[in-house]
Amino acid sequence: MALSRREALASMLAGAFLLPGTGCGAAQADPSRTLLPPTASEDFLARCIRCGRCAEVCTAGCIELHPPWAGAEAGSPFIVPRVAGCNTCTMCTQVCPSGALTPIEPEDVLDAVDMGLAYVDEGLCLSFLGRVCGVCHDACPFPGEAIVLGHHAQPQVLGACVGCGRCEERCPQIPAAIRVFRQDPGSPRWKGPA
């Protein structure tokens, strides 16, 4: 292939500069209000090859894919818990080819999954406003372990919460009185290093 060094450099740059043109850096969904699929690795965006298999296999239909103009996240999966929470079926972890998700079995979920942490807004929660609710507890895949109900079914989230987001999906209050936040330094509800 006869190619001058200048042409070669120019085409490499062209390849790289096509990217900002597609909207690099313009995040579309508020990252603190989206979750990553279970067992996402720390360098998730580097690992994920954007094959979409996790979204296709998700039994809850909760995994969505960022559109091409989402910059660095384009093509990678995310979950909006208020739309649909994760069933903790672990299928996505088992089909991921790249190691972006670590394969686990359903019985490992409580130990291995940390998608975020649920927070109850006591000023919104129906049970704290005097109307016995407790829907979040019933929606949780680990009732009694991740979330417990006190007097008048007032919910309390425990450290075992895996952040699946089913409580947020089902909470009948508008806006949701229980919400799940990613536990990383960018999150408005970061608890600090564990």
């Binding site: 190619l3 042409e7 490499m12 390849g15 790289a16 580097a46 660095a72």
Partner: peptide, 24 residues
């Protein structure tokens, strides 16, 4: 320039820590 585009994208992935092929 196919090989050079490929090399550019691989270098981009290495430098930015994110995949780039899906955009191009």
């Amino acid at each position: 320039l196919g090989l050079w585009v490929g090399l550019g994208l691989v270098l981009f992935s290495a430098g930015m820590g994110m995949g780039a092929f899906h955009l191009v």
